[in-house]
Design a protein around this nucleic acid. Sequence first.
RNA 1: GCACCAUUAGCUCAGUUGGAUAGAGCAACGGAUUUCUAAUCCGUAGGUCAGAGGUUCGAGCCCUCUAUGGUGUACCA
Length: 562
Amino acid sequence: MNNIKDSVINKIREAYPALKTIAEASCFEVPKNPEHGDTALPCFRFASVMKKAPSSIADELKKLFNGDPNFESVENISGYLNFKYSRKTFADFVISSLNSGAVYNNLKEKGSGKTMVIDYSSLNIAKEPHIGHLRSTIIGNSLYRIYDFLGWNVVRINHLGDWGTQFGKLIYAYKTWGNEKNLSSNPVRYLQELYVRFHSEEEKDPELSDKAREWFFKLENGNTEARSLWQRFKDYTIEGVKATYDRIGVSFDFYRGEGYYEDKARDIIKEVEASPVSRISDGALIIDLEDYGMPPCLVRKSDGASIYSTRDLAAAIDRHNEFNFDKMLYVTELKQQLHFHQVFKALELLGYGWISKAEHIGFGSILGISTRKGSVIYLEDIFDEAKSRVLDIMKDRDIADNEKEEIADKIGIGAVIFQDLSRSRVKNIEFDWERVLSFEGETGPYLQYSYVRIVNIIHKAGVPVNQETDYSLLSDDMTYELIKTMSYFENRITAAYNEHEPSVIAGYLLDLAKNFNRFYRVNRIIGEEPYAAEARIRLLIALEGIFRRCLQILNIPVIDKM
RNA sequence: GCACCAUUAGCUCAGUUGGAUAGAGCAACGGAUUUCUAAUCCGUAGGUCAGAGGUUCGAGCCCUCUAUGGUGUACCA
């Protein structure tokens, strides 16, 4: 893999110093037609330096690799220098470096000593998580796992929407129509009902808006009753939401709402006021961003109150002070892109150069869930529905009922998560039950099923002992294609990291699964000749290692039975 | 008005950062199971990469313009 390519490049640079600056390991590409070879070096870019036709360059370079034990053949095909690895050497190299853990240790060093702060999921208090919250949660969690896998120290923050006039509404509604008993039995749904009731009553009686503002004013100014109700609403919501997070394997280091940053927001207002980059416009304190083609960043409203951008400014500074991060990510809908660009630019103008380490990771919206029909789709309902469909498929399986339930839940969750993560972040998604609940083809259950097959074979065959592995037994086409796919692991993980794109790993898992299932069909292990069985088991152990890690990175439950 | 994002097979999407004959899944049709789990595998069919220019040895990918759809555009988050 990489060091094979490096050795090729070194040989070329030695023989042709003129190519020193343009010949790199990254020049290699994978031939579209596998018959051409395993990796290829296009020689077109060398033509201008060497003043020769690409094809004759390739012919010349080819001579450097006469008798090279890494390769079975090196051929020039119309300007491409195509390499075929020695299958035996390659299989040995790929499998050994995975099974020894060298590949993983190498990746783990990349982020060693570095800290990343990630802000995702960001639920609203008193609202049950619904389909609209899924993407930030799932994408954010996967990015956390990617960084973690690469050895970063990651701080996960759930930035709760727990401030603003809507809390005045909630407090008023609870005090007017609410009761303790309903609140403690099913808090979040109950609070939602109260919120809805407030809005319908408000239509009849506009004076309610003032009452809500009054209560929010009290909350802001530390009124004990308002504060304690607000705190309870928050605690109940977090408690309820944690059950859902637990179900899908998501967790956070901090739940910090906007309320947490209120004091700090006051500080930043003072600082901005004193700064030459700010001015008063229409009674509001702003940082003008016209020179950068953006509307101004609003720091204090004309009524004197803070606004979300104030709190985001304060939060960024606070996080930098506390964690001294090397990277900070905000995972939200693409819609908020402008807002974050404004906040970043404002901080830069205020002299906080470290904000260049912050990045907004935007993703497309989920469409077709318009609330006009009142058709909110709650996350729990999606997972429940998926689970019951899975149970139906599993009804004849010989598995104990309680275990079956548990497995079905994990398969349903895998299906929902995968259909979300398998598409590029920026794409909008049309919500479609049929697609969410499909379990065949390129789906989560397909991956889990493939994984179960791998584990079962390893389990049933037993781990090999006392035998020298004969890697030449892994050189048929099916097996070789699988090994080649496995060799892309580092490359795919790194790409997902660079692009902040979990779908890269989703696509890679599909490649692995497809190649494995082809392999599975023609290569038996149990009952096979011992040396062949042993070599294949080694291969599958390596495959299991990367497969499991990729599933974990995407947060797809790992199961060994289905 | 301005800005950002998207546009690839009937549908949903990939396309390893500018390379060889643009690939999968679903849907359709045909086939494979006395087998380590058929939630699998194999085959057939399906394309003016939205359109027009440009850059160069070479463009689905980069630049310009246009079209269509989505989103955002200071006191909501």
